[in-house]
Design a protein around this nucleic acid. Structure first.
Length: 463
DNA sequence: GCATGATCATGC
DNA sequence: GCATGATCATGC
């Protein structure tokens, strides 16, 4: 009893019949019994299971694992995806949106418009359900149904960026660097790790090294942007760098353009060029200059948020050295010791690992001037943590956990012990403490990327 | 000059 | 009140 849907309209009518309902409300008792039995066997945690039962018992299709869209005739790919609810009708995506696996061998001969990715995913049917912890898989309520054509329904510059993201990933595979792929390499479309079983590795054609299996995905932040603009129709609460219609260009080019005329200028020259003044050199002085350059008022910048880019102001000494390391949010000792670096599941990836792998940084680099209090804007660059150093980061992370487990709160990995990362305090002051697994109180700390390490990354770019 | 410990400032 | 980003202070 496999149904076929001839066109979008037929799919839409069916899909919308589950709006504000759960699966239990709309499928047969027989199907419910079958699913209940399976849930009994496997538990509800099995990934992708909800997507399977929606296909099989709600739409009554059986697409299997093919290169064709799930609704083959209608040319539509189905994605069921969880939403987290916050106060006042605010929703965010619980996860990234994961597409098909990247085939390292065949993708190198593809081009964007004819890619297997587009062939399968050009038109998406997004079915959002309200995620609540421990809720039965049959009882999730579907709250939004949305069709999204990746070439037509999102801004042209986003389509362009997604194409560039796809091409970047393919170029890296062609260079024989599939094992160095990272989600932070790209902006909206990422190559996220995806393993059916632990530590599955896949061969790549251009290198003897095995690479982690990866799938294309939309970053969580980009899905949030889709939710905000397409589902809620909200005027976003964020500020935008590109207020007028912008050129079709990448995020990198767009943002670098904004800074271009101010490079090698001093702070006072920049302010003069902007017809702007700033009273005193407060702690946020440089950040305020940057905001003026970008033409934004707030720290929440749409273009940075939707690509998971963190802006970091970096100040070089007049000699060119970098004093300050880069901090991450303070960690929770009790939570940290329960984390796994990577076990094949994105969802359970350690926070620090995720921060290194998924994040992009925008470094805005100033340099102090000898003998004056002036600073000069030297360089604007995008950076993400290179995967060649990920094992070293893991080592530091593991040692930190070992220290906590052993109750050694005064011998965390120091800067001198690693070329990459270390642990240091990060609280209001030394009295700013949180609970440890031993139920004692310890000063808040966090992981840092070594100043020297960042300096090296900047130098590579300055050359 | 640098590593380490510590704290400040800001915005939500 | 707190998280986060940014920077200071000290001693070797």
């Amino acid at each position: 009893m496999i149904k076929s849907y001839k066109n979008k309209n037929e799919v839409q009518i069916k899909a919308e019949s589950i709006l504000n309902k759960s699966l239990r409300d709309v499928i047969s008792q027989e199907a419910i019994n079958t699913i209940e039995k399976k849930v009994g066997e496997y538990g509800t945690k099995r990934k992708g299971y909800l997507g399977n039962i929606i296909e099989r018992y709600f739409f009554e299709i059986n697409p299997g694992n093919t290169s064709e869209p799930d609704f083959q005739e209608a040319g539509i790919e189905l994605k069921t995806t969880p939403l987290k609810t916050h106060l006042a009708r605010k929703f965010t995506s619980k996860e990234r949106l994961v597409f098909s696996m990247i085939n390292y061998e065949t993708i190198v001969s593809e081009t964007w418009l004819l890619s297997s990715f587009l062939k399968k995913n050009k038109t998406l049917l997004l079915m959002f359900y309200q995620w609540i912890e421990n809720k039965h898989i049959l009882d999730y309520r579907f709250i939004f149904i949305h069709f999204l054509n990746l070439l037509q329904d999102i801004p042209d510059e986003d389509v362009f960026q997604i194409q560039k993201d796809w091409e970047y990933i393919v170029a890296k595979i062609k260079r024989g660097e599939a094992h160095l792929l990272s989600e932070g390499d790209t902006y909206y479309l990422g190559a996220c790790t995806k393993a059916a079983n632990n530590r599955v590795v896949r061969d790549q054609t251009f290198n003897s090294k095995s690479a982690k299996p990866r799938a294309f995905s939309f970053k969580q932040q980009y899905i949030n942007y889709i939710i905000q603009t397409k589902l809620l129709g909200n005027k976003s609460s964020t500020d935008s760098i590109f207020k007028k219609k912008r050129r079709i260009e990448t995020i990198e080019d767009g943002i670098k353009d904004k800074f271009a005329q101010y490079i090698e200028k001093s702070d006072s020259e920049i302010l003069k060029m902007l017809n702007s003044t700033l009273e005193n050199k407060s702690k946020g002085y440089k950040r305020l200059i940057i905001n003026r350059i970008l033409g934004v008022e707030s720290r929440n910048i749409e273009e940075l948020e939707k690509a998971n880019i963190t802006l970091k102001v970096i100040t070089l000494e007049h000699t060119g050295t970098l004093r300050e390391s880069i901090s991450f949010p303070a960690f929770d000792y009790r939570d940290l010791v329960t984390q796994t670096w990577y076990d094949g599941e994105e969802e359970t990836m350690a926070d620090f690992h995720l921060q290194l792998e998924a994040k992009k940084f925008l470094f805005v680099i100033f340099q102090k001037q000898k003998g004056t209090s002036n600073i000069v804007l030297k360089k604007v660059m995008f950076w993400n943590f290179p995967m060649k150093d990920i094992d070293e980061a893991e080592r530091v992370w593991q040692k930190t956990i070992n220290c906590i487990n052993q109750g050694n709160y005064d011998i965390f990995p120091k800067m001198s012990e690693s070329d990459v990362a270390h642990v240091r305090p990060h609280g209001k002051n030394s009295k700013d403490k949180i609970l440890t697994p031993h139920n004692t109180l310890e000063m808040k700390r966090c992981f840092w990327l070594n100043a020297k390490y960042i300096k090296k990354a900047i130098e590579l770019e300055l050359k």
